[in-house]
Design a protein around this nucleic acid. Sequence first.
DNA 1: CAGAGCATGTAAGAAGTTACATGATTGT
DNA 2: ACAATCATGTAACTTCTTACATGCTCTG
Lengths: 175, 175
Amino acid sequence: MNKQIDVSGVTELEGMALSMVCERGSMSAYDIKNALETSPSSFWSGSAGAVYPLTKRLEERGFLYSVEEGTGNRPRKVFRLTDAGLKVMQAWVLDVEKATDSGYDPLQSRLVFMYLMPEDKKEAFLDSVEARLHQRKLPKSAPTFIKRLHKSWVSARKSWIATVRETLLPPGSNT
Amino acid sequence: MNKQIDVSGVTELEGMALSMVCERGSMSAYDIKNALETSPSSFWSGSAGAVYPLTKRLEERGFLYSVEEGTGNRPRKVFRLTDAGLKVMQAWVLDVEKATDSGYDPLQSRLVFMYLMPEDKKEAFLDSVEARLHQRKLPKSAPTFIKRLHKSWVSARKSWIATVRETLLPPGSNT
DNA sequence: CAGAGCATGTAAGAAGTTACATGATTGT
DNA sequence: ACAATCATGTAACTTCTTACATGCTCTG
């Protein structure tokens, strides 16, 4: 019967959380929060007010279960994936429709309106963006795979910017 | 004195709205809603419940002002940029820090965890994403500039995916 | 003039944000 | 022992979502 998992009710943040728990085997809400904080996107703030309620939701929906790891006096609640949670996580990662979406792309949003800017600001803007792309640093502790993925993302951005410079910004191309 | 505009309190959606009003000269809330609905990103839903309160906020903050264009019986409220609104809009578009951020990138979020997927699913996923990238269509009415920007974005995505295929997905590269 | 659909909102709720509260643990 | 900080939350608020309400305008 192999019921198709409906991934439509899972937010991006929830998908990330499930995936991180899958990756590490078990995590507390605090661990998830910390992992999100060190993410390179400032759009993942990793606030406690987001993460603690999120783990509660995912447990209620049966995607996570928790065990008390009482190391010492303090209760430490760690979460693991249920079978349903694993399936939902896989469906989220392999969701082609979402993966094809441009999401919130701050650079794209701005390039759309770049032609409205004063002529001398356009080049300077792209210069600054390129320079800052190189300054982006992942934590030293990041796995090699993540570092390489990040590097390839930076390259793709740079090649996009190069194309924009050549074919889109010259006067007369904005009509 | 040239006071620096603080753009920190302006959301992405607000920046988009201000920029669209700047572009077209004047727009009603309904016009903004429609413009957002036809955007290629499904993350901009363009719901009335987002846009009408948003225009109210921006007017209260002095970035938009409205005039009644009473064509007929029905009041039609159209918005225009104030001087402050224009400055905020320019600061938003030229915000290098935001423009360097990866935002919510659904593909990136998924590639981070791709190595956890069954081996045979990885290639199939990338194939599907590439195929679907080509199916993305802008409305026929979109300006040439937007079409070209979109095309260059698709190219950049494809080159990123090619890199991922070559250097990141082979077994052994995920540790 | 009746129904379709355009245009302008509001209501309730979801999911995030910042800021605060509070107990446990650790370093000195 | 006491201050710092770790860890676990909660509270109030903002901004978005979906769904509904309601009056206008146009078309047959």
